[in-house]
Deep mutational scan, measured.
Amino acid sequence: QAPETKIVDKSRVACDGGEGALGHPRVWLQIPEDTGWVECPYCDCKYVLKGSKADAL
């Protein structure tokens, strides 16, 4: 199944896999201003900063 994409309001987000005990260790991710998105290294969930150029795609 394809990784999930989430639109977020802040450039710093936490990801834990979203499945409680079945998820992964919580990691904090920083969305770079130049790209407007970041992917979780564990679950490949893509976080897109709302209003960024990546959000316009």
Rank of each mutant, 00 (worst) to 15 (best):
Q1H: 15
Q1S: 14
Q1T: 13
Q1D: 11
Q1Y: 12
A2W: 13
A2Q: 13
A2I: 10
P3Q: 14
E4T: 14
E4M: 15
T5P: 13
K6F: 13
K6C: 12
K6T: 12
K6A: 10
K6Y: 13
K6N: 12
K6I: 14
K6V: 15
I7Y: 13
I7A: 08
I7M: 08
I7F: 11
I7S: 04
I7P: 06
I7W: 08
V8A: 04
V8M: 00
V8F: 01
V8R: 02
D9V: 09
D9M: 11
D9W: 02
K10H: 14
K10A: 09
K10I: 12
K10P: 05
K10Q: 12
S11H: 10
S11C: 09
R12C: 14
R12Y: 13
R12S: 11
R12N: 11
V13Q: 01
V13F: 11
V13S: 00
V13Y: 04
V13L: 08
A14M: 09
A14F: 14
A14Q: 08
A14I: 09
C15E: 00
C15Q: 00
C15G: 00
C15I: 00
C15W: 00
C15F: 00
D16T: 13
D16V: 11
D16I: 08
D16M: 06
D16G: 04
G17V: 03
G17N: 02
G18V: 07
G18L: 09
G18Q: 08
E19F: 09
E19H: 06
E19T: 08
E19V: 10
E19K: 12
G20R: 04
G20M: 04
G20T: 05
G20E: 03
G20A: 11
A21E: 12
A21P: 12
A21H: 09
A21G: 12
A21V: 11
A21N: 12
L22G: 09
L22T: 10
L22C: 01
L22R: 11
L22H: 10
G23K: 14
G23C: 01
G23W: 14
G23A: 15
H24G: 03
H24W: 02
H24I: 02
H24M: 02
P25N: 07
P25D: 10
R26N: 06
R26H: 06
R26Y: 08
V27H: 02
V27N: 01
V27L: 05
V27F: 07
V27T: 06
V27P: 05
W28Y: 10
L29Q: 02
L29V: 05
L29D: 01
L29Y: 02
L29S: 00
L29K: 01
L29F: 01
Q30T: 13
Q30G: 01
Q30L: 11
I31L: 01
I31A: 01
P32F: 03
P32C: 07
P32T: 04
P32H: 06
P32I: 07
E33T: 08
E33S: 07
E33P: 11
E33Y: 09
E33G: 06
E33A: 09
D34F: 05
D34Q: 09
T35G: 04
G36C: 04
G36K: 01
G36S: 04
G36L: 02
G36N: 02
G36A: 02
W37L: 06
W37Y: 13
W37R: 03
W37H: 00
V38M: 06
V38F: 01
E39L: 14
E39Q: 15
E39T: 09
E39I: 15
E39A: 12
E39R: 15
C40E: 05
C40G: 05
C40F: 09
P41F: 01
P41V: 04
P41W: 06
Y42G: 07
Y42V: 13
Y42E: 11
Y42A: 11
Y42I: 14
Y42M: 14
C43Q: 00
C43M: 04
D44W: 14
D44Q: 15
C45L: 15
C45H: 15
C45Q: 15
C45I: 15
C45V: 15
K46N: 04
K46A: 01
K46D: 08
Y47V: 04
Y47I: 07
Y47H: 05
V48E: 05
V48N: 02
V48G: 00
L49W: 01
L49I: 06
K50I: 09
K50D: 09
K50V: 09
K50Q: 10
K50N: 08
G51A: 04
G51W: 02
G51T: 05
S52D: 09
S52C: 08
S52A: 03
K53P: 12
K53G: 10
K53V: 12
K53I: 12
K53Y: 09
D55W: 00
D55I: 01
D55H: 03
D55L: 00
D55R: 00
D55T: 01
A56I: 14
L57W: 12
L57Q: 11
L57K: 05
L57V: 10
L57I: 10
L57Y: 11
